[in-house]
Amino acid sequence: MKMAVISEHLGLSWAELARELQFSVEDINRIRVENPNSLLEQSVALLNLWVIREGQNANMENLYTALQSIDRGEIVNMLE
């Protein structure tokens, strides 16, 4: 549920979040190519990849820290 809210509000910031979460330029470009027409779909794809990559370590605290690092703390505030 929280992931959906984050995806809805990320907009163009999804790529900046991807870099903050240590995704490569290739990963970011692949997300763009696979989801060409929708920032929402790109955001969802990023968060899904992050959960798959991090497994047990994919917790909201880590995601909140990354969001705050890219000056998107207002998204965190909405969810708390």
Rank of each mutant, 00 (worst) to 15 (best):
A4T: 13
L63I: 14
I28D: 04
E16R: 11
L12S: 15
N29R: 13
A4P: 03
L39G: 05
E54T: 05
L17Y: 05
N77D: 06
N57A: 08
M78E: 08
L21C: 02
I70T: 03
W50K: 03
V51L: 14
Q56R: 13
I75F: 02
S43T: 02
V25A: 14
D27M: 08
N77L: 12
M78C: 14
N48G: 08
G11A: 05
R30V: 09
E80C: 11
L10H: 00
N77C: 05
E20I: 10
L40H: 10
L79I: 13
Q42K: 09
S7G: 09
N37R: 09
A18T: 01
N37C: 06
S38Y: 02
L10R: 01
S13T: 05
F23A: 03
V5Y: 15
L10P: 02
D27R: 05
G11H: 14
N59F: 06
I31Q: 03
L17Q: 00
E54W: 03
S43L: 00
A18K: 01
L63E: 03
S7I: 05
E8W: 02
L49Y: 12
S38Q: 03
S13P: 01
V51T: 14
G73D: 04
I75P: 04
S69E: 12
W50Y: 13
A15T: 13
M3N: 02
G55L: 01
P36A: 13
F23R: 01
L21Q: 01
D27A: 11
W50L: 06
N37Q: 05
S43A: 12
T65M: 10
S24H: 05
P36W: 08
R53V: 01
R30A: 08
N77K: 14
S43C: 04
S43K: 03
L79D: 04
E16G: 13
H9K: 11
N77V: 11
Y64F: 06
E74W: 11
S13E: 08
M78Q: 12
L21D: 02
E61C: 15
N62D: 15
A66M: 06
L49E: 12
A58I: 13
E16Q: 11
F23D: 03
M3G: 04
Q68G: 10
N57T: 10
S38T: 07
N77G: 13
L46C: 10
W50P: 00
L17A: 03
Q42C: 12
L17E: 08
L67H: 00
N48I: 00
A58Q: 11
I28H: 00
G55R: 06
L63Y: 02
S13R: 05
S24Y: 01
M78H: 09
Q42R: 10
M78P: 03
L17R: 00
K2Y: 06
L40C: 06
Q68C: 08
N59D: 15
E34A: 04
I31A: 01
L49R: 11
R72M: 06
L21E: 00
N35G: 01
S7V: 10
E16T: 08
S13H: 12
A58V: 15
M60Y: 02
A66G: 09
S7C: 11
N35R: 12
V33E: 13
N48R: 13
V33Q: 14
S13G: 08
S69H: 15
L63M: 13
E16A: 12
E34W: 04
R72T: 02
E61R: 06
L46N: 01
V44A: 15
S38M: 06
I28P: 04
H9M: 07
E20G: 04
N77P: 07
T65R: 12
A18S: 00
M3P: 05
I31M: 04
R32G: 08
I75T: 06
L40M: 12
R19G: 08
E8Y: 02
V44W: 13
Q42P: 00
L40Q: 13
L40G: 07
V33P: 02
T65Q: 13
L40V: 13
H9I: 03
N35A: 07
V33C: 15
E74Q: 05
Y64V: 08
G11C: 02
L67I: 09
E41W: 04
L47A: 01
V33Y: 06
L40T: 11
D71G: 15
V76D: 00
Q42N: 01
E74V: 01
A58W: 12
A58L: 15
S24P: 08
N37W: 06
N62Q: 10
L12P: 15
G73K: 07
V76F: 04
G73I: 05
L79S: 13
M60V: 15
E26S: 12
L79K: 05
I31F: 02
S24F: 01
Q56F: 14
K2S: 05
E16S: 14
N62P: 07
Q68P: 02
S7P: 04
N77Y: 08
V25W: 07
N59I: 06
I28K: 03
D71M: 10
Q22A: 12
L12G: 15
R19Y: 05
L10T: 03
T65E: 13
E8G: 07
E26A: 09
L46W: 03
N48W: 01
K2V: 11
V76A: 05
Q42V: 01
F23M: 03
N62A: 12
N29W: 10
E20A: 10
Q68Y: 08
V44Q: 15
V76G: 04
L47T: 03
R53L: 00
Q22S: 13
T65N: 13
W14G: 01
A66T: 02
T65P: 15
L47I: 08
F23H: 01
L49C: 11
V5M: 11
N35H: 14
L79A: 13
L10N: 03
I28V: 11
L39Q: 14
Q22V: 04
L17N: 02
E8H: 05
N77Q: 15
L63P: 02
E80L: 06
A45Y: 04
W14L: 04
E34Y: 04
E80R: 09
N77M: 10
A58R: 12
L67V: 02
W50F: 03
E74I: 11
I75E: 02
I70S: 03
A66H: 10
F23P: 00
L47M: 14
R32H: 07
E20T: 10
V51I: 13
T65I: 08
D71V: 01
L47H: 04
Q22N: 11
W50E: 01
S38I: 01
V5T: 07
I75Y: 03
N29G: 10
A45N: 08
I75R: 00
I28S: 02
E34S: 10
V44T: 15
E54P: 00
K2G: 10
Y64R: 05
V76S: 05
A58S: 11
H9Y: 06
R53Q: 05
I70W: 00
N59L: 09
N57G: 13
E16P: 11
T65G: 12
L21W: 03
N48Y: 02
L12A: 15
M60G: 01
R72L: 04
N59E: 15
N59M: 14
S24M: 05
R30G: 08
I6V: 15
E34K: 04
G55D: 11
V76Y: 07
D27N: 04
M3K: 10
E8R: 12
M78G: 11
Y64I: 07
V44Y: 14
Q22H: 05
L21H: 00
R19H: 14
N29Y: 05
E54F: 03
L12V: 14
I31P: 03
L46E: 00
N57R: 09
R72D: 03
V51E: 15
L39H: 05
E8M: 05
L47E: 01
D27H: 10
R30S: 10
L79Y: 06
N62I: 15
H9D: 01
S43E: 00
Q22C: 13
L10F: 03
N29I: 10
M3I: 15
Q22G: 11
N62S: 11
A4L: 07
R53S: 03
V25N: 15
V33L: 13
D71P: 05
Q56L: 09
S43R: 01
N57L: 11
L39Y: 13
H9T: 07
L40R: 15
R32V: 12
L49W: 06
P36H: 07
E80F: 13
E54I: 00
V5D: 03
